[in-house]
Design a protein around this nucleic acid. Structure first.
Lengths: 207, 207
DNA sequence: CATAGCACCGACCGGTCAGTCGGTCGGTTG
DNA sequence: CAACCGACCGACTGACCGGTCGGTGCTATG
């Protein structure tokens, strides 16, 4: 019956999704090498044999996990890229979307950079390409528009976008250490830093 | 003879130094877990037994490597912190010192953040403490002075210094990818970004 | 020449972990 | 009911790796 086929498919997919979810949580909190396939299997409530029924290797599981995550995030990013408005408004929308993600989701963005050295040629390229196109290119598109319409000073769009991303990550991480600061507070802080810099402004003329 | 004792000491120290140098190169290019003690020993032209004659464990070797490196860098950093001058000038001096280091030396600064999760309580604390006091605290001291003398806008000195460090790392890494740009060019780029931001300035009035 | 000490050697051990494989079980099809 | 299929099981293996230990040779001193 078609119903049963669907059920079986659903079950298989559900198991694969459970494994990916378990892998996510473990990889976020531990090093790639320190997270064993046994741990992942146990956390996903399958055996190692079951895990290897769905994924060809530990590396491929990791890559699958990353790809599915990046695919999910692409929606947020494309929304901001497509939006009409100033460069600052669009970056704000993009960053707000990012900030409102759960901690684990945001951490994944850093995982790639942390674990990228672990992988050999093939998987490495896959990861880099997927990661590059997921976030940095969206930011670069917005920044390029900003340069073209005179909102940003002329310069290399890629360097600027990486600077922006780095600022977001750093400021967010530091805000996470302390407790103070709402999402909007952090957001304005990052945007101000990026657009206006850290120097004191002679706003009042109090020289 | 006193000469011979010195020779022996020198020989032992030279071997230890050779091991640390080999470990540095390998750890920079590979993950902590993927660099084996056999590889390090081979690269240092000793056997594993010889390696363990000088270092109690792989982790301790890693920590020793980091400590000796940070100690060497401290000179550069303290020079800038002690210097008289504006916040910008002092940050420039500090950053120039950093930029003029060989690639491998600069990479080490990132290693700590990459590998810190690998270590357990004791070694971890050692590393964090040494690393914190080597660079970030020097930057924070300069930034705090800048806030106090009105050169920088009021704010959290720690967040600002981390932002600065992140900018330096990102801009440097991106400049390394492309070829263009002298040391001075990068330096001004980072400083301008940090102090003035990325927004276009109405300098000429060409609206 | 004898004795002692230290740098270093390299075979070996215990443990860990990715990946395998023969098998079970519940559902589906003819 | 029989033949089959795919999801899943779990004990096992082979490789690798951190760390050990008994030994070797070189140098220095008496």
């Amino acid at each position: 019956m078609a119903q049963s086929v669907t059920d079986t498919q659903t079950r298989s997919e559900a198991t694969a999704a459970r494994i990916i979810a378990a892998a996510r949580t473990l990889f976020v909190s531990g090093n790639y090498a320190d997270v064993t396939t046994d741990m992942i299997a146990k956390a996903a409530d399958v055996t190692k044999g079951g895990l290897y029924h769905h994924f060809a290797s530990k590396e491929q599981l990791y890559v699958s996990m990353m790809l599915s995550d990046l695919e999910a995030k692409r929606l947020i990013f494309e929304q901001a890229t497509a939006m009409e408005g100033s460069c600052r408004e669009r970056l704000a929308l993009l960053t707000r979307g990012f900030l409102e993600l759960p901690d684990e989701d945001r951490e994944l963005t850093r995982l790639v950079r942390r674990d990228i050295n672990t992988f050999s040629g093939d998987e490495r390229d896959q990861l880099v390409r997927a990661y590059q196109s997921a976030l940095p290119e969206q930011v670069a598109a917005i920044v390029t528009d900003g340069i073209n319409n005179g909102e940003l000073a002329p310069g290399d769009a890629r360097i600027l976008s990486w600077s922006f991303i780095a600022l977001v990550e750093v400021v967010i991480a530091r805000y996470a250490d302390h407790v103070f600061g709402s999402t909007e507070g952090r957001l304005d802080h990052v945007l101000d830093l990026f657009f206006e810099g850290a120097a004191a402004k002679p706003t009042g003329g109090t020289e």
